[in-house]
Amino acid sequence: MFMNTRSNFDESLKELKSLQLKMADEAETAIKNAMLSLLNQDIELANKVINNDNIIDDLEYEIHEKALMLIAMQSPVAKDLRRLHVALRVSSEVERLGDIAVNIAKSVVHIGDEKHLKELIDIPRMMEMALEMLTEAITAFYAEDPALAKKCAEKDDQVDKMFGELVKELLTYIPQNPDFTNQIIQLAFVCRFIERIADHSTNIAENVVYLETGKRFNLNK
């Protein structure tokens, strides 16, 4: 009955969303590479993750500029306004994810080529769960699917529990293996970084629910 009168604005919103997905993709790749560098003690790959972080930072800057420009020029209201608000918030969450990849990569550099005290089994398991959450959060964001967003956030408790147990276990190794203190501390840091990936994924999921419903939910309880 009515023609769409804001095709230019809609086109700009689409462009903004593709930029956000590109940024999320970069961050996801950075985290995966950081994890691979840890498992394979691949310093070169770790340095690549550290050096590539500016790509994610630049994308965040570009998204913020575009979103602010659209707020200023297009007078968005209701869901359009929430969409731009969410673009700003989610891009900041994703930028933090990029920083986490860098932090993991720096721990890899700190550990260097020192042989791992024991084979890493639980850390990759925890990472797998956090990455699953991240993928679900990004998919929910892409599809604007609040049900999937809530499902993603439900896993946060498991990651938190795993983090507590793993750090406790790691610290018990120090008295018997004082020479490996640096490595153990770095691995405890990595556990903390992975736990933060789950938190940021939950925050992205909360923004998906806000975008769709206009209501704030704390999914991180």
Binding site: M1, T5, R6, V77, K79
Partner: peptide, 10 residues
């Protein structure tokens, strides 16, 4: 209402 206030028709 959402469509109207956000300029999607009118």
């Amino acid at each position: 209402t959402e469509e109207y206030i956000s300029g999607r028709f009118g």
